[in-house]
């Protein structure tokens, strides 16, 4: 399952109002490490999609969202729960480390 793209227009419905925790992957085409993390997130989404929703924000297309959430480095992964950022992960990490960082949401 490939992660859905969200925009400023859909952020409220898809992320802030979600009943489930939502991991937002802030990424860009020109970011090499982002391209490496993306298939790992797709795998985590396939394996744990019922507990954690994974979506993407393209920072080139949605600079306002990136700015609003203080993104200065990508890939940046932020987990939202009840409309708030509850976890922030910066930089590309291998799958076992990401799984460990996200353990409270996927176990």
């Amino acid at each position: 399952m490939s992660a859905k793209s969200v925009t400023t227009a859909t952020f409220q419905a898809d992320v802030l109002s979600s009943g489930k925790p939502v991991l937002v992957d802030f990424w860009a085409e020109w970011c090499g490490p982002c391209r490496m993390v993306s298939p790992i997130l797709d795998e985590i989404s396939s394996e744990h999609g019922e507990k954690l929703t994974i979506v993407k924000v393209n920072v080139d297309e949605e600079p306002a969202l990136a700015q609003q959430y203080g993104i200065t480095s990508i890939p940046a992964l932020q987990v939202f729960q009840g409309g708030e950022v509850v976890k922030s992960i910066v930089g590309a990490k291998p799958k076992p480390q990401l799984m460990a960082d996200l353990s409270e949401f996927i176990n």
């Binding site: 860009a28 020109w30 970011c31 090499g32 490490p33 982002c34 920072v59 080139d60 990136a66 203080g70 993104i71 200065t72 480095s73 990508i74 940046a76 910066v90 930089g91």
Partner: peptide
């Protein structure tokens, strides 16, 4: 502060500055 203003990758993060 890494990822919050401190960076090692200009090509990844320059865009935000």
């Amino acid at each position: 502060l890494s990822g919050h203003g401190v960076s090692w990758c200009a090509t990844c993060d320059g865009f935000f500055f």
